[in-house]
Design a binder for these strands. Structure first.
Lengths: 118, 118
DNA sequence: TCAACATCTCAAAAGGTATTGAGATATGAT
DNA sequence: ATCATATCTCAATACCTTTTGAGATGTTGA
């Protein structure tokens, strides 16, 4: 059954993505693939203290963009690509009515101009 | 020349989108198409005072997601579909490495499960 | 058991964001 | 000129977010 995330889920996800540390974490985890990475390693790669990392990873997890699974004394975080895809689908199709100009930008080879550039 | 929005632009746009009133405004304006709508009409449709509307429309405009053009005594706002598309492209391709599972969700017929649902 | 490790929680401080209502500004009509 | 209209600005208030450092919790290995 096709069911988009509801608005409040989408808002939580967008809010989670709108912070530079968290965007970097997500980039890192997507690049890692299904294997994910433990909190400490993410912190070392990106550069933040354990409490700061815990805070940001918690925001991402509560927003549903990453999953956290305990593995002995570590916590492995993984990007939830299905959730991320659902957010994209919500934005493109539900919020933007699948506007062709917007949809066109989503393919890897898309030639979309940056915002506010001539 | 293909050039994605830079990170700070993307963050401003994501932050602008992560508020329910503004997401509604954008939905409304995308549905309106290139004709756009004056501030007052958006406020009536969505339900907010002029000062609140001015604040939120300003956030969207500063983030580059909408354009504002003065037309006699009204200000016409329009969704900037190129900028919105560029944001989508940035998220999908630059942040998420064009992960196939994420890209798959962007077509209108995509069957993506919502975040956090079984 | 004890020490080291990985992560989380908590409270304080600083800064950012949203809402409200009053009022300023500018345009168009009488 | 005067008035109504459309929008923006401003200051006050309330609330939310981020960072920091200290320390709590739970896990593994000696």
């Amino acid at each position: 059954m096709i069911q988009p995330p509801d608005e409040s889920q989408a808002l939580a996800a967008l809010s989670a993505l709108s912070e530079s540390t968290r965007l970097r974490i997500l980039r890192f985890l997507v690049a890692r693939g299904p294997q994910g990475a433990p909190a400490g390693e993410i912190g070392e790669a990106i550069g933040f203290s354990s409490s700061r990392g815990s805070f940001h990873l918690g925001v991402l997890a509560r927003a549903g963009l990453v999953t956290a699974t305990k593995s002995s004394r570590q916590v492995i975080y993984r990007a939830d690509t299905v959730a991320i895809g659902a957010l994209m689908g919500y934005l493109i199709n539900d919020c933007c009515g699948a506007d062709p100009q917007i949809v066109a930008c989503c393919s890897p080879a898309a030639a979309c101009r940056p915002q506010g550039e001539s």
